[in-house]
Nucleic acid binder design. Structure first.
Lengths: 174, 174
DNA sequence: CGACAATACCTCGATGCCGATGTATTGCGT
DNA sequence: ACGCAATACATCGGCATCGAGGTATTGTCG
């Protein structure tokens, strides 16, 4: 998820680590903060894998910056990760939102639609959070208000997303 | 999150690891599957910390089971974790749902309400996923449909949850 | 009778993430 | 003159998680 965000932001323009961190924090930081000690090693991994290059520039305000630029390999790696997200990226909302944030970088509308259809299929699977034996409980059933809340919120999210998915798939010509 | 789920399920009744795994999978597995190799070490950690005890029973169907029972320390540990969730448990929906799933185990309605109020405060902070410089973008603004989707879905979720939070806080006498 | 799924538990190595800590510079407030 | 915040990058130990693999038993299907 973090690596996807790094590749995604750099796809638009070269950035240095500190700026990258600010953007990632704006994107997902309110939900899951990104520690510096997670970001810098991630950058190193991507550099080692040949997905990005760094160039040292004098710092505009303070210490020198390492400006990061995606390589061609990095650009195709991003497209690959967007086109073939793993199952977790589809099911976990945090990861899914990161995929969506950069899905526009996949140029082919059919490829974009294919990714959305995977999410659609996931949302259409009948699943609940709570069960009475094997029977999934509906939002009205749990006897405590907190579990009712979970189901109520999940249902509202699901409805909103299904509506958006259908509209967007139609617009993409799917 | 995993440890919270283990403590939460065992609060109701002693279970063996395999059954625990099925319940946790039903609760959060569609979003984030739990590997066995994560669950069993987690059980060991909690046992070592004195939060649960295990008793070996002949297996009903196959291999012998280790039936897990919460100790008094384990029961108060669960209540402590529910009453004082860390910031991540409040902001990350996956973790938050796990807190909600077991919040009924906190007997004091005022303590339950205090936790809900932390979530309310978080949802009321103005945050966006996308920015134009420092200005947060509204759901209609992004030029690509995927980022619009993120904002649309997040807004729907937020509205549903705020409504439920206000109703529930009122019902709790807050 | 043999294969296989389900039950039930476990270990190991790799990896990614986190908190704490360190280094160095610039600029602002007092 | 001094401290502090912000900029900018980095390392380190510890830990949770994962995938792959292992062990053993019972029941079911062909």
């Amino acid at each position: 998820m973090l690596e996807l965000a790094i590749l995604g932001f750099l796809y638009d323009a070269p950035l240095h680590g500190y700026e990258l961190r600010k953007r990632i924090t704006a994107l997902t930081g309110h939900v899951r903060p990104v520690a510096e000690s997670t970001l810098y090693p991630a950058i190193k991994r991507l550099e080692k894998a040949g997905f990005l290059m760094r160039a040292t520039e004098p710092g505009a305000v303070a210490a020198p910056r390492h400006v990061l630029t995606l390589t061609d390999d990095g650009r195709s790696e991003l497209r690959r990760r967007l086109a073939e997200p793993d199952e977790r990226d589809i099911t976990d909302e945090n990861r899914w939102f990161t995929v969506l944030a950069f899905l526009r970088h996949l140029e082919d509308p059919a490829a974009q639609a294919a990714v959305l259809r995977r999410r659609l299929a996931f949302l259409q699977e009948p699943t609940s959070f709570f069960y009475d034996g094997d029977r999934p409980l509906r939002a009205e059933e749990p006897d405590d208000p907190f579990r009712r809340g979970v189901l109520t919120i999940a249902r509202a999210t699901s409805r909103a997303e299904l509506g958006w998915l259908r509209d967007t798939l139609e617009a993409l010509g799917g």
